[in-house]
Structure formats: C-alpha cells, structure tokens
Design a binder for these strands. Structure first.
Length: 132
DNA sequence: TTTCTGACA
DNA sequence: TGTCAGTA
C-alpha cells in the first residue's frame, strides 16, 4: 500500500485550504511549523504546500492543544514518536509496529509522569491548573 | 488576492 | 495568538 502513503505525503494544499480543513489560523499553522511540529514543503513562490499527512498532524496537534497540552509537551510527544517508531520497526519486521492505540497509551503514561507538580521546577511542561 | 516574514501587544 | 506592515 505504498501508493497510498505516497499520495498522503504529496504536498498539494495551500495554507488557506489547510486553515479551512483544520480550523486553525495561519498564524497558528506557521507557529507549529516554527516549532518543528510540521514540515510543509515550499513551492516556487516560497508558499507553504501541505500534504494530507501535514493536515493529519495539524488535527492531532489541535487535539493536544484542546486537551490542555502546551507546545513543550507536544514537542516531547513528537520527539517520542520519532524515536520509538523506527525502534519498534527494526525490532520486528513482521509484527506490526506500535499501533496508534499503543502510542496513545504510552503517551498517556508519559503525559501523567510529567503532569505532577514540580514547585521548584520552572520548566514544567504541563499546567497543573488544567486538572481543576 | 493570497501568503510570507518579522514585530509588537 | 491576533494583527499590522511591506512584499512577492
């Protein structure tokens, strides 16, 4: 099914289209790119061109934001994904890699482990207040 | 018209 | 994040 993956990674949307698709503002989309959460391609005119994958990523990011996770937290999640995915793929070529559900589960525990109060630590990734 | 970057609130 | 400026 690599034909499908190929299409999903074809950059065909302008930021205007992505805005409608994701309900995000151009400002937010550009900011997420700055944070290395998405990597849209650029066309001849330096315009961002997004793929279906980018849109998916954006929708995912939107969910995390809605859940109260800040940029630092989301960045961690994405770093985590980048490292864990290839790792499990190498481990066993036949067995399916982590399912999205597995990732969710792992991310959840990861999330909980960094959600506690850390009074003296100003680098808190999650705002504790969101739990009240 | 649409999008881009940079900057300020 | 919103918004404004000056471009391409």
């Amino acid at each position: 099914m690599r034909e499908k993956e190929l299409r999903r990674s074809m950059a065909v949307f302008t930021i205007g289209t992505v805005m409608k698709l994701t309900d995000l503002t151009a400002r937010q989309i550009r900011y997420y790119e700055e944070q290395d959460l998405i990597h849209p391609e650029r066309n001849e005119g330096n315009r961002r061109m997004f793929s279906l994958n980018d849109v998916d990523a954006l929708l995912e990011i939107k969910d995390y934001i809605a859940e109260g996770i800040n940029m630092a937290g989301i960045k961690r999640i994405y770093e985590f994904k980048k490292v864990e995915k290839p790792l499990t793929n190498n481990k066993q070529k036949n067995n399916p890699a982590l399912t999205d559900d597995d990732v969710r589960r792992i991310l959840h525990s990861e999330f909980l482990s960094i959600s506690g109060y850390n009074p003296g630590n100003k680098s808190n990734l999650i705002d504790p207040n969101r739990f009240f």
